[in-house]
Design a protein around this nucleic acid. Structure first.
Lengths: 202, 202
DNA sequence: GCCGGTTTAGGACATTGTCCAAATTCAAGT
DNA sequence: ACTTGAATTTGGACAATGTCCTAAACCGGC
């Protein structure tokens, strides 16, 4: 394990624990047994370190495979997996608003991947409709909007309102929420997938 | 206009413009033509100033009246008005996660008012069901969850993804979103209110 | 006209992210 | 084995931050 990897690991651990903006570089360095200047050798600025974490999360999500969502169950299951990744990098999502405001690099790459992700969701829903999981007249614009809002901020709301619950319970709650979102727009085949997904959560 | 009011006004203006954590007390003081120490006379800490703003917003929302939501249209209209208040105090909502983590006073009062607000929404929906605007079998737990998530974070998402649009357009988008959320669970009478509300947005 | 509380000024303090120059380590080349 | 040059580490400087404190100025009531 290289020193750079150790820095990334420890940073992620401490950022998740106490929040990105509340972990000083001096604390991080002390926890690693090195000096601050040494930290800035590998990551010239704190933002560079944060960008690295964001890149890691993005790669993790990309590994989940492309837009191949043959059925509604897989679509929901994919959302659940993304939620697990988000928990591992929760510090990023809890600070997403500030990061987008101040960190230009992150802001542009995030916007790019979000655009791609958005397109993939729209395509996925339209595929689900064609495959007979969603009603032909389902308002996909509405569904995508609520879906992306939830995917972005569920973890923020959980940190505010459900701090006493475990990550597993958080995911359970919000995954079920998204599943129920599709319920009124699903065909009988789709409703079957939704029931199966919700039953599998517990 | 007392000096204290001037401070609150200017602080809100600058916080909204550039974000709470990125406006230094020295800048705020300079903009007001006073010294930092003078600022801390009225508000010993920055958090005290933020708490004051939160209190003002809370009062503003309370002025909208209690849980009296006789029909679905009024319920949605009330949401729209809350959105307008939130825009006036948007700095608070954009930092809500960090504020809840660090500011103990705000955290407790917020939790209190949110609990009250939550109960009022649950009661409102149940009243709408009894009044024949929502189907008897509507999943109010689901509706409340999505509704509160949207109410809390729509402005954060807008600041990230729809920065090029105006506040009016933001409200239009998210108010319509919430309205559509109720559509599948509404009776014919309820759908009529939803249509009327959406038409009135433009 | 003085007095006591209110308000203002100015600076000290520790902490933050960033930056830099010197010192040290280390592997490759001769 | 010795040298060279790059990679790494060190320690401290810097400006900016939120907070705190003391002394000065103000100002209305006696």
């Amino acid at each position: 394990m290289t020193r750079e990897e150790k820095i990334v690991d420890k940073a992620l651990e401490m950022f998740n624990e106490r929040g990105i903006e509340y972990v000083g570089l001096r604390e991080l360095a002390a926890a690693l047994g090195i000096r601050v200047g040494n930290l800035t050798y590998y990551f010239p600025t704190k933002d560079d370190l944060v960008n690295r974490l964001a890149q890691d999360l993005s790669r993790l999500n990309d590994q989940l495979g492309g837009a191949a969502t043959p059925d509604l169950f897989s679509f929901l299951e994919r959302f659940r997996k993304v939620c697990e990744h988000q928990i591992r990098y929760r510090c990023l999502l809890l600070s997403v608003v500030h990061l987008m405001e101040r960190n230009r690099v992150l802001s542009e790459t995030y916007k790019e991947t979000e655009k791609k992700r958005f397109g993939s969701i729209v395509g996925g829903l339209s595929a689900l409709r064609q495959a007979g999981y969603l009603n032909p007249d389902a308002d996909t614009g509405f569904l995508v909007s609520v879906f992306t809002l939830t995917a972005r901020f569920w973890i923020s709301e959980a940190s505010i309102s459900f701090r006493h619950l475990s990550p597993r319970e958080h995911i359970h709650h919000y995954a079920a929420l998204v599943a129920k979102l599709f319920l009124p727009y699903a065909t009988e085949k789709g409703r079957e997938d939704i029931r199966r997904f919700i039953n599998g959560l517990s």
